[in-house]
């Protein structure tokens, strides 16, 4: 299915909850409000002509230092979906505010979302409401802060043993 047609389907389904679309470099992208993301994912997965059955990737971007987005929501949670039967891709993005970094979980739709969401929580500090087991994935429990946030300095170390540098 053509990318524009997929975006049109999402638009009719989501209405005002679809905040915008773009197809920069041929990657069709839908920006979805937080309230609509679970519906958008479920719809993309189950609709017979969309059938996005693989959640290829789930990540986030911290836009704290992006020129031109100082006033907008700080984070984007990014979903990359792929459909094996139809061989098409789509990207969904959910803007998240710094003060309320919560997104509903997709663990009920895809089991892999469990670990990917844990990683986003670990690295960005975005919480996923309804996640069964939201622990850190890569860092250790004693680690404070979320390293991939733009305001976390790359050299701030928190060693468990050895010299505190």
């Amino acid at each position: 299915m053509d990318g524009q047609a997929i975006l049109a389907r999402l638009e009719t389904r989501l209405g005002a909850r679809l905040l915008g679309t773009h197809d920069h470099r041929g990657d069709h992208t839908a920006i979805v409000a937080r309230e609509g993301i679970i519906e958008a994912l479920t719809f993309s997965r189950d609709e017979s002509d969309l059938r996005f059955n693989v959640l290829m990737d789930l990540t986030a971007v911290d836009y704290l230092k992006l020129p031109g987005r100082e006033d907008g929501p700080r984070f984007d949670v990014v979903y990359h979906l792929y459909s094996i039967p139809h061989n098409h891709r789509i990207r969904l993005k959910v803007p998240v505010e710094q003060d309320d970094p919560v997104v509903p979980t997709a663990t009920s739709l895809w089991p892999i979302a469990n670990w990917l969401e844990r990683e986003v929580w670990d690295m960005f500090g975005i919480r996923f409401a309804g996640h069964p087991d939201l622990r850190r994935l890569l860092m250790y429990e004693e680690f404070e802060g979320h390293p991939l946030r733009k305001d976390y300095p790359i050299e701030r170390r928190q060693p468990l043993i050895g010299p505190k540098v």
Binding site: H24, R25, D27, T29, M56, D57, T59, P67, H80, Y82
Partner: peptide
Amino acid sequence: PMGEAYFAVEGANGELGFY
């Protein structure tokens, strides 16, 4: 230019994507 892109190749273990 400002923007984003995702490119996937077939890695040895499966789809290796760079966003």
